[in-house]
């Protein structure tokens, strides 16, 4: 008689044990779902571009340039060329066409010797690429590639030739990325925006400029003055030459260097105006092509877009601002 209750108890116990076992077994199968473990966001912005991306961009740029150069069609440059670079290139195509191929566009190597990559997570982004020396042993170029927004590609905004005897400041590795300084930062001896303004004043006014002492003498400035003087001399009989340079506030980029300074890249516009006092000026084919008229009788205006790269020392430094590279590209000619 006692056996039955005991059996029942045993059954209950068995059932309980079974349940426990099953639960355990099922629990064993139900390993928790893996949850994403997001790596901590880096405290410092990483390099905006990886080496691969830089190479890819440059390769693509080279392809686009080659296509544009082949077709002498600035439209083909659209995907990868913009700003002063596009304007200058366009003018060069015109010149090449006007000269029947005698004057080819500026050679732009797209293989990087070194890269200054911005460390940023925002846009626009600008990277500087120091190219290898061109085959004709011209000066190395500094390519300025700019990405205005996230959905835009890096485009060649401008290029500049390294000035002779210039030593590039040391910069952080491309993997780390160089800090991007604001145009109005006070970490530098001169704010990037002011650098361009003051240099433009120096170009315009020469040594008379108040800013002249801040800038070390450079070949570019001398070259411009020389060119201006020659032009003035050549047209002295019939015209006077006036030249002014104005900084373009947009597009000033400052990438920090290891010495606390920065490489400041900016653009200025130089306008050279010939005022015809008597008679007329016959334009060469290129000028004619650019201006659309073979001669001018009143004024002739050359517009140049200058891409300049400076090394600006850190704030408190007594070192002058040095011009590293510059390109003085004629983009338009107009006259009356």
């Amino acid at each position: 008689m006692t056996a039955r209750p005991q059996h029942a108890r045993a059954r209950r116990a068995a059932a309980a044990a079974l349940a426990v076992a099953l639960t355990a077994g099922l629990a064993g199968c139900g390993t928790p779902l893996p949850a994403p473990e997001a790596p901590a966001a880096p405290a410092v912005a990483p390099a905006a571009l990886t080496a691969g991306q830089v190479d890819r961009v440059l390769a693509d740029l080279g392809t686009v340039l080659a296509a544009g150069d082949a077709a002498l069609d600035p439209a083909a440059l659209g995907p990868r060329v913009t700003g002063p670079a596009l304007a200058v290139r366009t003018a060069e195509y015109v010149r090449q066409t006007a000269t029947a191929g005698a004057r080819t566009p500026t050679v732009l190597p797209t293989r990087a010797q070194s890269v200054v990559v911005p460390a940023t997570t925002t846009w626009p982004r600008t990277q500087l690429v120091v190219t290898e020396q061109p085959a004709d042993l011209q000066a190395q170029r500094i390519l300025v590639l700019q990405q205005p927004d996230a959905r835009s590609p890096y485009r060649l905004w401008g290029w500049a030739r390294l000035l002779p005897g210039v030593q590039l400041p040391a910069v952080a590795s491309s993997a780390t990325g160089s800090p991007v300084l604001a145009a109005d930062t006070d970490a530098l001896r001169l704010a990037p925006a002011q650098v361009l303004e003051q240099y433009a004043d120096v170009l315009t006014n020469g040594d008379a400029s108040a800013a002249a002492p801040a800038f070390a003498a450079d070949a570019f400035r001398d070259g411009l003055r020389t060119a201006r003087e020659q032009t003035a001399a050549s047209v002295a009989a019939v015209a006077t030459v006036a030249e002014s340079t104005v900084a373009v506030p947009e597009g000033v980029v400052a990438l920090g260097t290891l010495d606390g300074g920065a490489i400041v890249v900016g653009q200025t516009t130089t306008t050279t105006t010939l005022t015809v006092s008597q008679g007329s000026l016959t334009l060469d084919p290129t000028e004619a092509a650019l201006s659309g008229r073979p001669e001018v009788t009143r004024t002739l205006v050359y517009t140049y877009q200058d891409v300049l790269a400076f090394h600006v020392p850190a704030a408190g430094s007594s070192d002058p601002v040095r011009l590293l590279a510059a390109e003085h590209g004629r983009v338009s000619v107009s006259g009356e």
């Binding site: 059996h7 059954r11 068995a14 079974l18 076992a21 099953l22 077994g25």
Partner: peptide, 28 residues
């Protein structure tokens, strides 16, 4: 008297555990 049923239950549970273990590594 209960020992045998108890043993049977124990054995059953043991077998079930083994099966569960195997199943966890195979079926499940």
């Amino acid at each position: 008297m209960l020992t045998r049923p108890f043993a049977a239950v124990l054995a059953a549970v043991g077998v079930v555990l083994v099966l569960l273990g195997v199943a966890s590594a195979t079926l499940w």
